[in-house]
Amino acid sequence: MIVKTIKDIEGTSREVFAQNGNWVSKRLLLKEDKMGFSLHETIIKAGTETLIWYKNHLEAVYCVEGEGEIETTREGEIYTIKPGTMYALDKNDRHYLRAFKNDLKLLCVFNPPLEGGEVHDEDGSYPL
């Protein structure tokens, strides 16, 4: 059985910060945990916009706190994010993620699982 708390993650290699300061990801489950997916608590900083394109991963996201929006780059569709909202990037959707006046606290699941230290590359994706 695997049991962890956010406090267990803080200050370790499983707490990953965006190079531009837009987010911090606390990675509770990773590939090495052999669950077939990774699980993260991610904080998107208030007032930020991040271009994301998980072309190598599928992601599902559940909002716990804060308000923001996701905008697809292809269609320009905008979806409101607030507590209780789930969105799934089932088509590797390239998008902008915006947090409004408060931080967004998100629970994220990735398939295939992340290995640990990944940060977005120049096109907004994680390497496979």
Rank of each mutant, 00 (worst) to 15 (best):
L29Q: 04
R74W: 06
C63I: 14
Y96F: 10
G124D: 06
I81L: 15
N92I: 05
F110S: 03
G84L: 10
K105M: 04
L97C: 14
L30R: 06
P112E: 06
I43K: 04
L128A: 12
N22R: 04
Q19N: 12
Y126H: 07
F37I: 10
C108V: 15
E49M: 06
F17P: 03
A99Q: 02
K4W: 05
E32K: 12
W53F: 13
A88S: 14
I81G: 01
V109I: 13
M35G: 07
V64T: 10
H57E: 12
S125A: 15
T73G: 01
A46F: 06
S13F: 09
G117S: 13
A60Q: 10
E75W: 05
D103C: 04
I43R: 02
E77R: 10
C63T: 15
I43A: 02
E69N: 07
D103F: 07
L89G: 01
C108E: 15
Q19D: 13
H40E: 00
W23Q: 08
Y126Q: 04
G36W: 06
G47K: 04
P127N: 07
E77I: 13
E32R: 12
D33S: 04
I44Y: 09
K4R: 15
K91A: 12
E67M: 08
K45Q: 10
Y126E: 01
L29Y: 12
E59K: 00
E71V: 14
D8R: 10
L97M: 15
K31A: 08
H120S: 07
P127V: 02
E15V: 09
I43F: 03
Y96C: 02
G66Y: 03
K45T: 04
I2A: 12
W23M: 03
N56E: 15
I9C: 03
T72G: 11
L97G: 01
K55R: 14
T85F: 10
L39T: 08
K82V: 00
N22T: 15
W53N: 07
I6L: 10
